[in-house]
Design a protein around this nucleic acid. Structure first.
Lengths: 237, 237
DNA sequence: CCAATAGTGTCTATCAGACAGTATCGA
DNA sequence: TCGATACTGTCTGATAGACACTATTGG
C-alpha cells in the first residue's frame, strides 16, 4: 500500500494461482503430481493447483484445489493438514504471462492411488526423489524442495507427524514417518521416550495391533491435543 | 496451474502488492510505519509497501520498497535482513478491489528517525505495542503480529540477532536485543556461555568499549559466519 | 528355533538454569 | 565509596545418545 491513490484500471495485470505440495509417506516420501494436458509443459508433471477465483480467499482456493484436483478421499480430507508455504513471483516463471503463485504444503495420511475416472484421474503419487530427478514443470522443482524442507523441519518442533500417520498408529509406524521423511534412522528407545514424555503428542487407544511380519503386538495410539514440541525432536544427522 | 489452458484476457483481475514489517530494537521493539495520504484509511498508519511492477520479481519489489519508502540510510541498507513472511489474500482486505499482499519482514540495526524531506518523510518508528494498540490500516495489524512472531522465533534458532545489533556490539547489547524482542529477561551468564559456545555466532574484534553509565569496558564482537543455532536458544518464559 | 518387532532399564555426556563471586569502570 | 556492568566459575537437574536386555509374535 503506497500513499498514492490507485486507479482500478491502472494496476499491473497479475494472475494469482495456488500450487500445492501434497506429501504423504508410503515406501518413500511421496508427492502428488498431475500430468499437464495443455501447453506449456503439456504432458509433463506438475504440482496440482489453479487460479484463485475473484470471490474466494487464497486459503479457500487452496482448500478447493486440494479437494478438487487431488483425488484424496473426501472422508480423509478433514484430516489433511494444509498450510501456506511461500509465494513465488519471478517475472518469467510462467512463459505466457505474469503469474504469482502462492504455494501451500499439505500433509496427508498414507493414501491409496487416487481413483481413476474422477477429476483427478491424472493425479498420482510419486516419490519426491523421483519427481526431482525427473523434473517438474514451471518452477515446481523449487516449490517442491521448499515444501519438503518445511515438512522436514515441522516434524522437529510440531506433532504433525501424527497427521502423516493417520488416525490410529503404533509407535513403530510413527517412527517410520520420521525416518522416511528425514531420510535416516532414529534410535528406537529414545524416540519412544521422547514421544511418550511429550504431553499431548499421542494418546493410547487401549488397543493392540499385530504387525505383518511377526513381532509382538504393538500398542495403538492416536494424536493428542498438543501441537508443539518443546524442546524439539532434533534431527542430528 | 491446472491442466486447463487459460486465456490471458480471462484471468481474474488481481493487484499484487508487497507490505514490509521493518523491525528494529530501540528502547522497545519498534516498527516502521507510514502515514497514509489517500483514502481509504487516509491519515492513518500503515506498513510501508506498494505495487509489484510488471517487470520485477516480488523479491525485487520488496527490496525496492524497502529502499524507497523506508528512509533507511543507504549505507546501512545492505545490512538489513529481508525475508518473505506470508501472503495475505482475503477477499475484502482492501475495500476498493481485490488486492493480494505478499508480506516481508525486515530486521534493521538500531536506526535514527528517517530524514525528513525525503520520499519517506511520512515514515517513522513506533513501538510495536503502540502500533497494535492504536491500530493500523487494512489488515496490517495481523501482518505485524505475524511478522513479530516470526522475528521472535527466528532469534531462537538463527543468529539474526546480530543483524539487529549492528556491525559492532558487546554481549550486553546483544543480550538486550533478545530481551527487548522477547519481552523478558535472560540470565546473563548462561546467555554469554551459549553465544560464545556456538561456532560462528560472534567473533571478537579485539576492541573494548566502555558503557554509558559506568561498568567495566566490554569486549566488542561482530557477527560471525554462522546462521543457524543448533540447538536453539530457547525462550522458556 | 529364528527373525522381527515391542517394550523397559540404565549409564553417561551434555547442557541449561541458577547463583555466587571477582573485576573494572564512571560519578 | 557506590552503583553498574563485565566476566568467570560451579553446582545441579533435565535430557538425549547409546546400548543391553526381555517379551511376544509369525514362520
Amino acid at each position: 500500500m503506497t500513499t498514492t491513490p490507485y486507479d482500478p484500471d491502472a494496476f499491473p495485470p497479475f494472475a494469482v494461482t495456488v500450487d500445492i505440495v501434497v506429501l504423504t509417506v508410503a515406501e518413500e516420501l511421496s508427492v502428488l503430481v498431475v500430468e499437464r494436458g495443455a501447453d506449456p509443459f503439456a504432458g509433463e508433471l506438475a504440482l496440482p493447483g489453479g487460479f484463485v477465483l475473484p470471490e474466494e480467499s487464497i486459503q479457500d482456493a487452496a482448500q478447493r484445489e486440494l479437494a478438487e484436483e487431488t483425488g484424496i478421499d473426501a472422508a480423509t480430507l478433514p484430516d489433511v493438514h494444509l498450510e501456506q508455504l511461500a509465494t513465488f513471483g519471478s517475472v518469467a516463471r510462467d512463459p505466457r504471462m505474469r503469474v504469482v503463485s502462492v504455494a501451500y504444503v499439505a500433509l496427508s495420511p498414507t493414501q491409496p492411488a487416487p481413483a481413476a475416472g474422477t477429476d483427478a484421474a491424472a493425479a498420482h503419487w510419486i516419490p519426491v526423489s523421483e519427481a526431482l530427478e525427473h523434473g517438474l514443470a514451471f518452477d515446481h522443482d523449487e516449490i517442491l524442495t521448499v515444501g519438503v524442507d518445511r515438512a522436514r523441519s515441522k516434524l522437529e518442533y510440531t506433532t504433525l507427524a501424527t497427521v502423516l500417520a493417520g488416525t490410529d498408529f503404533t509407535l513403530g509406524e510413527l517412527q517410520r514417518i520420521y525416518e522416511v521423511t528425514w531420510g535416516f534412522e532414529v534410535e528406537r528407545a529414545n524416540f519412544r521416550r521422547k514421544v511418550l514424555a511429550t504431553p499431548g503428542f499421542v494418546e493410547p487407544t487401549g488397543e493392540r495391533r499385530t504387525g505383518r511380519g511377526g513381532g509382538a503386538p504393538a500398542a495403538v495410539y492416536r494424536a493428542g491435543p498438543g501441537t508443539v514440541l518443546t524442546p524439539p525432536l532434533m534431527r542430528t544427522a
